[in-house]
Design a protein around this nucleic acid. Sequence first.
DNA 1: TAGCTGACGAAAA
DNA 2: TTTTTCGCCAGCT
Length: 114
Amino acid sequence: MKSRIDTDFFYMVYEVVRLVPYGRVTTYGAIANYLGTKGSSRMVGWAMNSSHSHHSPVPAHRVVNREGLLTGKNHFHTPMMMQELLENEGVRVKNDKVINFKQLFWDPNLELKM
DNA sequence: TAGCTGACGAAAA
DNA sequence: TTTTTCGCCAGCT
C-alpha cells in the first residue's frame, strides 16, 4: 500500500479530511500520524491553508487541534463560520472548543486502519 | 539565496 | 503538574 504514500502529502491530507464523517471531527496529529509523518502535524494545518488552492471541498472545519480547539477558525472566511458549520452538523462548540470532543473524535488510524 | 513563519504535537525541564 | 523548547517541512518575504 505504499502507493498511497506515493501520492502528494497534501493530497492525502485532503483525502483523509474529506473522509471525515458528518458530525465528526479529527485532529491534525491524527492525520499526520495516519500519513506516517507524526512529527509533521504542522504540515497538515499548512496543507489546509493551501487547500483553498485546490478546488476540492475540504471540510477543514472538521479538523481541530489535539485539544479540540478551533485553532484554524481564524483562517476561514469568517472565524465564527467554522463554529457555525460544526454546530450545523450537531457538534456543540463552546468557547471555540468542541464539546465531547473525545466522543466526536474520528481517528483515521482507527477507522481507516489497514 | 537565505531566513522566518506557521491551522501542531510531543518531549524535556 | 505546568511551562518551555524543539522538530516537522513547505511557502513566503
